[in-house]
Write a protein that binds this DNA or RNA. Structure first.
Length: 366
DNA sequence: CCCTCGATCAC
DNA sequence: CCTCATATCGAGGG
């Protein structure tokens, strides 16, 4: 396999940057995009904030109430999420990115990998020109800045884009990759979160340099075959995972927060019904059917529990789905005699594209 | 091999 | 004080 050139893009503080565009007067001041849970007027968490807000310690995941305190001395703006807006902006930018790639992989609403090996003719200098061009085009057309990493594989490209933010461009050839990553803490490796980091700390491993010295047998012992092997390679800047177009998602879910904790189905079902129709709407929009239904319950201690059923045949029928969800809820409260539920959710999975009337019609019309 | 469920990650 | 959505893995049971 010849040397690849992979480009990773990360749209800077994306939701907050979208808000700055629609409300230009907000620029230069703290902007906080929030997920309001509806439990009380201010309950919920921060989804994203711009860099002015981050200076005050306001970042993704902290409670809105805490963000208010951190910003009480300054003029800051708190906005609810506007997902349709972010989806539209994202879709247009992904369209631009795609045109600058041989193959393209959307990772999330604000991240993508581009394989530009052919486009750049194997040259990292040309790859840099492409990156500059892409950044320029996104800025001109959408007024959005992004951070870009270029490397011989997805792993290092992502770590490179993360290295210089916002509006960064980091290029890491194979010969520099080891020097670059070995200084970094292990949690800069994608896939290494709180839990894996803790386990590594237990064996005195903090940096990637230290991780590279751990016997692979130990890694597999501690983390299993898959993650163990991944960590072994990642510590060496190696990753041969190809850039591949993502197929359709294999699950859709909706979760909501109850006004008050409860374990009585009659207090939970109204919300569960809303969530079910929302996720069913999504299923229909995507012209799909599901063969599995899951109930997600989050208790007062924030522990997460699931119950699921596999259906006899794929369905998109709301009655079938709701009946199954109801049964799962009954099963759950029965299995947890003392648990009070804080949040409830529904997931449709084992998704299949619908074969049917519409497809045949469009086929015949074509 | 299939199903169910919990754990983890990261947005 | 504590949102929401998706993918993936591993264990355990059948």
């Amino acid at each position: 396999m010849p040397q690849r050139i992979i480009l990773h893009t990360d749209l800077d503080y994306f939701y907050a940057q979208c808000e700055e565009i629609t409300h230009p007067e907000l620029r230069g001041r703290p902007v906080v995009v929030c997920v309001y849970s509806g439990r009380t007027s201010e309950s919920g968490v921060v989804s994203t904030s711009n860099y002015e807000a981050r200076k005050y310690g306001v970042k993704a995941g902290i409670p809105i109430v805490r963000a208010r305190k951190l910003l009480e001395s300054v003029e800051a703006t708190f906005l609810p999420m506007n997902r349709p807006l972010y989806d539209q902006v994202s879709n247009r930018i992904m369209g631009i990115l795609k045109t600058h790639s041989d193959s393209f992989e959307k990772l999330s609403i604000d991240e993508a990998y581009l394989d530009i090996s052919d486009l750049a003719e194997g040259s990292f200098d040309k790859a840099k020109d492409i990156a500059v061009q892409v950044k320029e085009e996104i800025l001109q057309k959408e007024r959005i800045t992004c951070s870009v990493g270029i490397a011989p594989n997805k792993l290092v490209a992502k770590m490179a884009s993360d290295y210089n933010k916002p509006n960064g461009l980091t290029i890491m050839q194979q010969r520099d990759a080891i020097k670059f990553i070995e200084e970094l803490p292990v949690n800069r490796i994608p896939g290494v979160g709180k839990k894996v980091e803790e386990k590594l700390t237990d064996i005195q491993v903090h940096t990637i340099r230290e991780l590279a010295r751990v016997d692979p047998v130990v890694l597999i012992e501690k983390f299993g075959k898959s993650l163990g092997n991944y960590l072994f390679q990642a510590a060496r800047g190696e990753d041969n995972d190809p850039v591949k177009e993502r197929e359709q998602p294999t699950q859709f879910s909706r979760i909501g927060t109850l006004k008050q904790n409860s374990r009585k189905p009659e207090e939970i079902l109204p919300l569960l019904n809303e969530l079910a129709s929302s996720v069913l709407q999504k299923l229909n929009d995507e012209k799909m059917e599901c063969k599995s239904v899951s109930l997600i319950a989050i208790l007062t201690d924030l522990s997460i529990h699931t119950k699921s059923v596999t259906l006899d045949s794929p369905t998109r029928d709301s009655k079938t789905i709701m009946e199954n969800a109801k049964t799962l809820l009954d099963r759950f409260v029965e299995s947890m005699p003392n648990a009070a539920i804080r949040r409830i959710g529904i997931r449709l999975s084992d998704l299949h594209k619908r074969a049917g009337q519409t497809d045949i019609v469009s086929f015949l019309q074509a």
